[in-house]
Structures are given as structure tokens and as C-alpha cells.
């Protein structure tokens, strides 16, 4: 029992590290700077200026916080999806399915470093907000905010794991990823208050990751306590867990179908 646990833990950590390194094998500091720091900055600036033009300069923090937390979805969706789908594109999927390795450890491990990377991305985004757009963090409970960011990157990575499985059966991975990322811009409450959305759209919002994380972050930065926003954080983790579960079921189904039909490497 203990040995199995040890093996699975090793599989989880080594798989997590190797898939992250493999994904960014081409990575140079300049590439990271462009895609993980400058691109999110430009996105925060665009939506904050659009938002303040639409409302007033006094609402800047609403858009800064929303779009900084939204950065979690860059790692969560694109990073995780490419880590999962990469096994198919690089031809390593057949070897993975040939091993007796614990599938859950292998599957969830793909998201681990992207959760950490996502936290860093959100912190950088909030830093941009403070330095460039006057975001005031003086009332913030920082440990609680960190917990909220962790919960949010966890849930967006859950969505990434589910979309990653779609990339195992679809050739239009980037289309699906882009659609999910841009849909979150509408539904997550980053730019449009969820309360102003029609009922059916609000229902979709609350079923998606990010929505509760953004709401909790706004509350904490405005001076609310951890206890007040705890239900939102718990809800965010629960949403993430549901997406991971759905993704894992799809992953196992795909493995079963691929073995049965002999389509493991079919494109």
C-alpha cells in the first residue's frame, strides 16, 4: 500500500515536471516575457481602459482585478491543454497507455506546475495593476487572497484538463481553447458584472471556473475577511473538482475507445 502510494507520488511529480519542461522545451526568457507577462499586461490595459471609458475612471479596480485573475486561465487552459494534447501530437501517448501507471496521478499531474505558474501570472497581473493603474491593496488580507488565487488557478486548470481531453479526440485544439478563453471574458464577471447578465447567462457564469474566484478577490481587496468570502472559495474549488472529474472520465473513455478501435494515434 505504502509502496503504491510512493510510486504514484513519484509518477505525479515526475510526470508533472517533465510535461511542463517538455511543453516549454523551446522556452527562452524572452518567450516567457512575451507570452506570460506582456500579453496579460496588454489584455489588462485594454479591458481596463475599455471599462473605464464605458463607466468611469473610478471603476478601474473592478476591471484590473477581474482581468488580473482572468490570467489564471492562460496557464489553466492553454498550458494544461497543451500538456495533455502534447502526448498525442508528439507520439508519446501510445507509450503512456502501454504503462501500468496510475492514470489519475498521471492525468492530474499534467496540471500541477500550471497551477503554480498561474499563481505567478496572477500576482504579476495584480502587480501591473498596482504600478500602472493605481490598484489599492491597502485593505487586502494577503494570505486570504493567495488562497483565493490558488483556488482559482486550481479550478481553471480543472477546465484545462477537461479541454485537454477534447484535444485528444479533436484536431481543433486551439479553436476550442480560444473559444473557452474568450467565453470566460464574457461569463466570468471579469468585465461584465454577473448580476447584469440575463438569467441563463448568469447560470452559465456560476457553472464556470473563475467567476467565484474573481468575486472573492474583489471582496478581499475591498477589505472583506476570509470568512466572508469562504463560501465563494469553497465553491470555486468544487467547480474545479467537478471539471477534473469530468476530464478524468473523458480521459479514461478515450483510452478505452482508442484501445478498442486501434485509433490511439489516428488523426
Amino acid at each position: 500500500m505504502l509502496r503504491t502510494l510512493r510510486i504514484n507520488a513519484r509518477l505525479f511529480l515526475e510526470g508533472a515536471l517533465l510535461s511542463y519542461v517538455a511543453l516549454f522545451r523551446w522556452l527562452r526568457p524572452m518567450t516567457y516575457l512575451a507570452s506570460k507577462i506582456m500579453m496579460p499586461l496588454a489584455s489588462i490595459l485594454f479591458f481596463t481602459y475599455l471599462g473605464t471609458y464605458a463607466t468611469s475612471a473610478g471603476n478601474a479596480s473592478f476591471y484590473v482585478i477581474g482581468n488580473a485573475i482572468q490570467i489564471a486561465s492562460v496557464s489553466g487552459i492553454y498550458g494544461v491543454t497543451m500538456s495533455i494534447g502534447g502526448d498525442r501530437w508528439e507520439g508519446t501517448l501510445v507509450y503512456l497507455f502501454g504503462t501500468p501507471a496510475n492514470r489519475l496521478a498521471m492525468f492530474v499531474g499534467r496540471a500541477f506546475f500550471h497551477v503554480l505558474d498561474g499563481i505567478l501570472g496572477v500576482l504579476i497581473g495584480l502587480g501591473w495593476g498596482v504600478f500602472l493603474l493605481g490598484l489599492d491593496l491597502s485593505q487586502t488580507d494577503f494570505p486570504a487572497l493567495l488562497i483565493t488565487i490558488l483556488a482559482t488557478t486550481f479550478s481553471t486548470s480543472g477546465l484545462g484538463l477537461l479541454l485537454g481531453c477534447v484535444s485528444l479526440v479533436s484536431l481543433d485544439t486551439m479553436f476550442v481553447n480560444n473559444l473557452a478563453y474568450f467565453a470566460l471574458l464574457i461569463f466570468s464577471g471579469a468585465n461584465i458584472p454577473v448580476t447584469t447578465l440575463p438569467g441563463w447567462m448568469a447560470a452559465i457564469s456560476w457553472a464556470m471556473p473563475l467567476t467565484r474566484g474573481i468575486a472573492a478577490s474583489r471582496g478581499l481587496i475591498a477589505g472583506e475577511s476570509l470568512a466572508t468570502v469562504a463560501p465563494l472559495i469553497v465553491g470555486e474549488v468544487a467547480v474545479g473538482a467537478v471539471y477534473i472529474l469530468l476530464g478524468y472520465v473523458l480521459f479514461r473513455w478515450f483510452e478505452f475507445q482508442a484501445r478498442r478501435r486501434g485509433t490511439l494515434e489516428a488523426f
Binding site: 479553436f175 474568450f182 467565453a183
Partner: peptide, 23 residues
């Protein structure tokens, strides 16, 4: 090309929805 179609149709439409809602 689905990547191009996203850039030409879907992304501008999503930005339009956002901007209409906001402005």
C-alpha cells in the same frame, strides 16, 4: 481553417458582445 475563422468571426464577435454590453 478553424484558427483563422476564430480570428475573423468568433473573437471579434465576443469582443463586440463585451463592448456592446459595456458601452
Amino acid at each position: 481553417d478553424s484558427f483563422v475563422l476564430f480570428g475573423i468571426l468568433i473573437q471579434p464577435l465576443i469582443i463586440a458582445v463585451l463592448a456592446i454590453w459595456m458601452l
